[in-house]
Amino acid sequence: MTETVLYASLREAVDEVLETMFFTQTEGPADPDRPPEELIVARVDFEGIPPGTLRLRITRQAACRMAADFLGEEECELAAARITEVVAELANMICGSVLSRVESETPFRLSPPAVAAAIGPVAEPGAPGIEYQAQLPGGALRVMFQEGGTAA
């Protein structure tokens, strides 16, 4: 699998999941100079051939807006736990969608998403694997996909 094909698969998967399930679209590349801010980070490990990891970082404000769209509720009424659940599902769907696009001969299996809060830049330089960053209504999203091992 070339990096170009994998990047295209990751970008298509992110865009399709956002448009179809979250009723939103990306607004171009994320600003690389965004200052550190409140984030929600998620990680999904996958088993198969090859195994690997998908990691996702999204600004809290963007996550809150997306969760409201996903659940059909008002942003201001959403508890933090519900936003976390939606980010977990976002990571799960993107990971499954990428793996379905790069279909291998063996079935894959996803681990339950691990989600945590963090503070930092959404764009963290030097991460391993393929990454896709996008500006979203209310914030930014960065997704990293690494095959052939698990990311730190």
């Binding site: 448009e19 179809t20 499954g96 379905s100 279909e103 001969e105 079935p107």
Partner: peptide, 27 residues
């Protein structure tokens, strides 16, 4: 309803009794 849209998983689940299969994301 699954994130796994691969044909082998779909075939396998239909074989063991699923009557339909919808891959996420879906409209």
């Amino acid at each position: 309803i699954s994130t796994d849209a691969t044909h082998h998983r779909r075939e396998r689940l239909l074989e063991i009794g699923a009557r339909g299969y919808l891959a996420k994301p879906f409209l």
